[in-house]
């Protein structure tokens, strides 16, 4: 060797522009919110960083949430941007223990989108709302020049009423609690990726996009000792668990062998160099439940069609606060971290 010495570049200054990683739901997204949005308009409610805000109005506890949908392709196996826009927002309300009631729907449409596609999307959105028992009561339409959008973007805002006596919070996990997962992970992300890349896998890749409010209702009927609910969407199960660990100030220990992953998803992840723990879901939830109620809640989940494959995947601990650890199938232990930015495919 030539002995040129060390060769590490200077750390680049904080990026002067937004990059895709800022929207990944991982650590970069969190930094953007903490360092830019919260200083600009933060308040006590927003600072809690829940998936929904719960505000008291006239003696009622009202849950409110908003979400924008930019999925590509617009249509995929298991759903489309219209149904997804309903499920995503309904699920964010459901994770706060609220019964979803009303939605808004705002469309940002790119010039040139086929009217037939828009009709299909609107129809799908309407049917999904009807199935969830929510009404779309207000909306907005904007059209942007060709090239300024990607077909169509949809924003939905939802409000619902928090059920009596329910107090769910991402900060509610306590040492000793059980960690439950409603079913196999990674299906939405892999369905989208295979559609986008034109990949054919053995076994059909179907998104798990589904409204979780009736599942949550069944769980809450079984016990009110549910401390936190999260739907592990962007960033996958790992991000959801890391957020819960950080916000509750607890450690979370999970068992690799207990986490359900469908064979087809496992195979696709293997091929693409992805880890299912980081792949998005749109119809799953993680529940952190008082140990004494865990059996009853798991039973209630398994009795519901969307929780038939629910599993107990770990426990909350008082050690290593803020961290998620996984006991591997080999009996060794490793950290399960959040992604810094995008999940990148490995190359060899």
């Amino acid at each position: 060797m030539s002995g040129t010495g060390l060769a590490c570049p200077l750390p680049l200054a904080l990026p002067g522009r937004v990059v895709l990683g800022h929207g990944s739901g991982g650590r970069m997204s969190g930094e953007l919110i903490r360092d830019l949005f919260l200083p600009a308009y933060g308040n006590a409610m927003l600072g809690r960083m829940e998936d929904q805000a719960v505000v008291g109005i006239g003696g009622c506890r009202l849950a409110m949430t908003t979400d924008s949908f930019v999925v590509k392709p617009l249509f995929f196996r298991g759903g489309d941007i219209g149904s997804l826009a309903v499920h995503g927002t309904v699920n964010d309300l459901a994770m706060g223990g609220a019964r979803p009631l009303y939605l808004s729907a705002a469309f940002i449409i790119e010039e040139g989108l086929e009217m037939e596609s828009l009709r299909r999307i609107a129809g799908s959105l309407g049917r999904a709302a009807a199935r969830c028992g929510v009404e779309v009561v207000t909306g907005d339409t904007k059209v942007v020049e060709k090239g300024s959008g990607d077909g169509v973007f949809i924003n939905t805002t939802g409000i619902g009423l928090v059920r009596e006596g329910v107090k769910l919070s991402a900060a509610g996990a306590r040492p000793g609690d059980a960690v439950l997962l409603s079913g196999p992970i990674g299906e939405h992300g892999i369905a989208i990726l295979s559609e986008r890349e034109g990949l054919e896998f053995e076994g059909e890749m179907v998104s798990d996009s589904a409204p979780l409010d009736t599942l949550v209702a069944a769980m809450l009927a079984a016990s009110r000792e549910i401390h936190c609910l999260r739907d592990p969407t962007r960033g996958g199960l790992s991000s959801a668990l890391n957020e819960l660990a950080a916000q509750s100030g607890v450690g979370i220990e999970i068992e690799e062998g207990a986490i359900p992953v469908r064979e087809s998803v496992r195979g696709a992840c293997e091929l693409l160099g992805l880890d299912p723990l980081y792949v998005a879901n749109e119809g799953k939830l993680v529940a952190i439940v008082d140990e004494r109620a865990a059996g009853a809640v798991l039973e209630a989940m398994r009795s519901h069609p969307l929780g038939a494959e629910a599993a107990r995947i770990g426990r909350v601990s008082g050690e290593d606060r803020g961290w998620v650890r996984m006991r591997t199938t080999f009996g060794t232990t490793r950290v399960v971290d959040m992604l810094p930015g995008d999940q990148l495919p490995r190359i060899c």
Binding site: P11, L12, V18, L344, P345, I347
Partner: peptide, 21 residues
């Protein structure tokens, strides 16, 4: 490029930032 190379820091920038610009 393969995905991994996008975040590798160069002297002044990386490919991610080129994309953002």
């Amino acid at each position: 490029s393969y995905g991994d190379m996008l975040r590798v820091p160069g002297t002044r920038s990386d490919l991610y930032r080129v994309k953002a610009e």
